[in-house]
Design a protein around this nucleic acid. Structure first.
Length: 564
RNA sequence: CGGGGUGUGGCUCAGCCCGGUUAGAGCGCCUGCCUUGGGCGCAGGAGGCCGGAGGUUCGAAUCCUCUCACCCCGACCA
């Protein structure tokens, strides 16, 4: 492609809306432009990079027996009502003129097709996938392409007859994912994750570490334990029971609201306090007890509650239902609430909690004696430095971007959408499903996050839109123009993808800056300086290393570098 | 959805508090000359109903009200 004819609008200045490197560079390099919040147009260079990523994904999906489909973005609303996902918050975008919705994923359509055509155990297993535009009602799009309302997803679905076969399909996808990200040159790690509203029995996320990530993960450098904070655990010890079980005692605690203030006011260790959090779960009042200053993890809470909508109660309701304001609420003699507690509180006594009377707390609480606790669950967010659940070494906490997510769905959709097959004995069974997603733009953006410098993107040959950026330093020099044109022709004949800067009246500095910004892995520079000695220059974008080669050796040398 | 911020030429921004020339700068763009190894120089030029609507005023980019859009923090997030 000749740059003189190409549509690659580069920008010298950083657009003010872009805050993270991948976003800035994709805009500056003319890879894409924003249309509206969370929606981007991909320009020619962006399409080429995305296409490269898609090719890798296709190859690896096909290699594990995936069959490519193309499913419609427009879905009948009724299908989503049937699966029970029509009203999942912030999930589906719909259109106004018809009872149609824009599909945010395709379990429903896969299920619809499968329910019609999968009839016998002989039809199983199947793995179907697509690479397709997906829509989600993101409340707050951000970070460029990392979180959009419209994005391209590779989504795959496995259909199996048994849980054992699901494990095989799932493992095959996991292996394919590793190959995909490795081939793309992305440094990733895998964490155990919550299956959330997706349902199912297990899931893992493929992550890259990034300060701009929206997920938080716990990692053990020693044994390799890795989990999303939504599900991460640690070996934080429970507090112990105290020997003497004293009777309940009210204590005056004027203007003492937080656990930290209580610790200071009473001079008692925080492990003697039961913190009360007041929520509504599906409309019903819920009191959650946490040990000391442990932080509630809402993902764990939702999981413990078996789904549904849990949110903090507002201050007015709090007062009318408990008789006290936040900071003075506790479990003793509290009526109308379901009470659950974190596992670290299990069986404890000698605790202090709110008295449901402003400025008072109650001491000597024995959860077994004084409170009707409806279950102990793991509800707390772990913190950095806590002992790894597997090997007890300190855990590290870091932010991460989710590149891919794989789920063992089980029968959730088979049940609602009636996806069954007949086994050898003629008995009807639900199909066991798995689902596997990759954000295609995230591949490109995450790669850039990990591979850029102050000048621009640093592509590897797998994702690079072009293998070579050929620069004619000065087109007004007849010799340079002739040698460049010849090189462009020869590389083209070799089948190499070349971006050729043949622009006239553009100064060399400008061309070099553009080349570094766009980031092709190899720059071939033809200028008078080298031609005097019958040479041209080859520069590696990644290292900045330059070598001079004789014109007649250039093709051989380039071939050699390309095959590395 | 709560909090904050920003909308002035293609991009980055100044001007706004404290209303009053013809609305500015840099970059980019066009023309000519010049230059040719790290976003070159000189000269000339095009391009803006100051996000939108309403109001106050003799007069509004500037003050007030409403509204829309975008960005950030939080909430949320398959």
């Amino acid at each position: 492609m000749r740059l003189s004819k190409a549509f690659i609008p580069t920008l010298k200045e950083v657009p003010s809306d872009a805050n993270i490197p991948s976003h800035q560079l994709m805009l500056r390099g003319g890879y894409m432009r924003q249309l509206t919040a969370g929606v981007y147009s991909y320009l020619p260079l962006g399409v080429r990079a995305l296409t490269k990523a898609m090719n890798v994904v296709r190859e690896e999906m096909n290699a594990v027996g995936g069959q490519e489909l193309l499913l419609p973005a427009l879905n009948p609303e009724s299908l989503w009502i049937q699966s029970g996902r029509r009203n999942v918050p912030n999930f589906i975008l719909s259109i106004k003129e018809r009872d149609l919705v824009l599909a945010p994923t395709h379990e429903e359509v896969i299920g619809y097709i499968a329910s019609m055509h999968i009839q016998s155990y002989k039809d199983l297993p199947q793995t179907w996938y697509q690479i397709h535009t997906t829509f989600r009602n993101e409340p707050r799009p951000r970070s460029g392409v990392l979180r959009g309302r419209q994005f391209i997803m590779k989504d795959a679905y496995s259909l199996d007859r048994s849980w054992e076969d699901l494990d095989k399909s799932y493992d095959a996808q996991a292996e394919a994912y590793k190959k995909i990200f490795n081939r793309c040159g992305i440094k990733f790690f895998i964490v155990g994750a919550s299956s959330g509203a997706m349902g199912g029995t297990g899931s893992q996320e493929f992550m890259i570490e990034s300060e701009f990530g929206e997920d938080t993960t716990a990692l053990c450098a020693s044994c390799g334990y890795a989990a999303n904070l939504e599900v991460a655990t640690s070996l934080m010890p429970k507090a112990a029971r105290v020997e003497k079980n004293e009777p309940l005692k009210e204590i005056h605690t004027p203007n003492v609201k937080t656990i930290d203030q209580l610790v200071e006011f009473l001079n008692i260790d925080q492990s003697r306090f039961a913190k009360s959090l007041v929520y509504r779960h599906n409309g019903k009042p819920l009191l959650i007890l946490m040990l000391g200053n442990d932080q509630l993890n809402e993902s764990k809470l939702t999981a413990a509650l078996g789904g549904g909508n849990a949110s903090p109660m507002d201050a007015e309701e709090l007062l009318s239902l408990t008789g006290a304001d936040g900071g003075s609420i506790g479990p003793v003699q509290l009526t109308g609430f379901r009470i659950i507690a974190d596992k670290r509180l299990e069986g404890l006594n000698g605790l202090i909690s709110g008295a449901n009377k402003n400025d008072y707390h109650i001491a000597n609480i024995d959860l077994a004696r004084d409170v009707n606790v409806d279950g102990y669950y793991d509800l707390r967010s772990i913190e950095a430095g806590e002992p790894c659940p597997k090997c007890s070494k300190p855990l590290k906490i870091s932010n991460a971007i989710e590149l891919g997510h794989i789920f063992k769905l089980g029968t959730k959709y088979s049940d609602t959408l009636n996806i069954t097959y007949l086994d050898e004995s003629g008995k009807s069974n639900p199909v066991i499903m798995g689902s596997y997603g990759i954000g295609m733009e995230r591949i490109v953006a995450c790669y850039i996050e990990q591979n850029h410098d102050k000048d621009g993107i640093i592509w590897n040959k797998v994702l690079a839109p072009y293998a070579i950026h050929l620069i004619a330093v000065n087109m007004s020099s007849k010799e340079v123009a002739a040698a460049s044109e010849k090189m462009y022709g020869q590389l083209g004949e070799m089948g190499v993808e070349v971006l050729y800067d043949d622009r006239a009246n553009i100064t060399p500095g400008f061309k070099f800056k553009d080349a570094d910004l766009l980031g092709m892995p190899i720059q071939v520079i033809v200028g008078d300086k080298g031609l005097k000695n019958g040479q041209l220059e080859i520069k590696r974008r990644k290292t900045g290393e330059r070598i001079l080669v004789k014109l007649e050796d250039a093709l051989t040398e380039i071939k050699k570098i390309l095959s590395e």
